[in-house]
Nucleic acid binder design. Structure first.
Lengths: 202, 202
DNA sequence: GTTCGAAATTAAACTAGTTTAATTTTTTAT
DNA sequence: ATAAAAAATTAAACTAGTTTAATTTCGAAC
């Protein structure tokens, strides 16, 4: 019952709390905003986005877990970011420019997602201009998250990156396989295993 | 004479050609845009921005060369990007959010720069809305340049990164010391020297 | 033009992280 | 519950890149 309820009536509270972190909406603005959201569920291993597709929506996770990654010529996977409850995911560049993406976004668990399309978002900006501010803040945050990630991955050793990851996303480490974490950290699963052993022995 | 002329009457042609790549302006729009630009020169080793300062302007290089970098706790320098003629530089995050920067931007050669302040830019948006498009494109480009840089630096070997750099910015390699290039590529000058020797021997 | 400090070169010892491969444990599908 | 597949562990050999240090070359300032 509980389960089914979940799947038929999405929990809008999470996204409203998320928006509310940066802008305040009145009753009618809330209703209008919610009316533009499309609710979708993705099973484990389903794709929210695939390379060559245009990213047509901004996506907010209300339940579940995703990974955003590319495959290089040799088939090696590079994980750009994970996503969990209360996170916005997507390919921002593809979305803004409406050009084909180069990313996969894949559900790592059964996931519930709220989507808003580019055209609806543009309408929303026109009708409720504060949303420009909200999405500009998202863009800025994405930008510096990316910047920090560059600096960290380049400046820190594998061990430091791992410790940093565990500290920053303690719950994620539980939810993900070691292989996923290793790929994200850009080290081999073998080396991550060695690292963890070394660290617990201390 | 030639020299002095340079320093007193900035060459606006370069920035107009740059803007013209993305939006088209009529005569009065051009004049208005130019009226908002402030012309400044920086001597070699002078700073255009320093950590803890708020980045109050967008900066367009009409002559010269700059580097944008941070110093970590150990005093190690991390070069985020170089800038040359026809490039926009600055700390986009600090500029957009008007919060203190963490970057140094330093002139590597005597440089001529055109600046537009945040407040003038906001006025410009209001009066000539196409500029929103122009600066949004700049932001998007900065975003993907950054994204590509992450992916490349993480996915490629030092040798591949070096070859890529030389191919992408052939003129930059001439202008910069090997130490600067090595720092940008995140390898030691010693190793870059070895790499170059190895490559010329082939 | 000379001098002085920084940048570049070379060699040798070293280390963080990879690769391969064999074994065990965990997860998943039936 | 069971079989099959995927993930994790361990060890050993290996390699890309660093560190240190000594020597040479270059460029900028007087």
């Amino acid at each position: 019952m509980q389960q089914l309820d979940h799947l038929t009536t999405p929990n809008f509270e999470i996204i409203l709390a998320n928006v509310n972190k940066h802008i305040h909406l009145d009753r009618t603005e809330v209703d209008y905003f919610l009316s533009l959201l499309q609710y979708k569920t993705f099973k484990k291993k389903e794709f929210i986005l695939r390379p060559s597709e245009i990213c047509r929506t901004e996506n907010f996770i209300i339940r579940g877990c995703t990974k955003t990654y590319t495959l290089n010529e040799l088939g090696a996977e590079h994980i750009v970011m994970f996503g969990v409850e209360d996170w916005w995911i997507g390919d921002l560049y593809s979305f803004l420019s409406q050009t084909p993406s180069t990313y996969y976004i894949e559900a790592l668990e059964e996931s519930e997602i709220l989507q808003i399309s580019k055209s609806d978002l543009d309408t929303l900006y026109a009708r409720v201009p504060k949303f420009e501010r909200f999405f500009r803040i998202l863009l800025q945050n994405a930008f510096i998250a990316q910047q920090k990630r560059i600096e960290q991955t380049l400046a820190l050793t594998a061990e430091e990156r791992y410790l940093d990851f565990v500290q920053k996303y303690p719950s994620l480490e539980q939810r993900l396989s070691q292989k996923q974490v290793a790929t994200y950290l850009r080290i081999t699963p073998v080396f991550l295993s060695m690292l963890r052993k070394r660290l617990t022995q201390r």
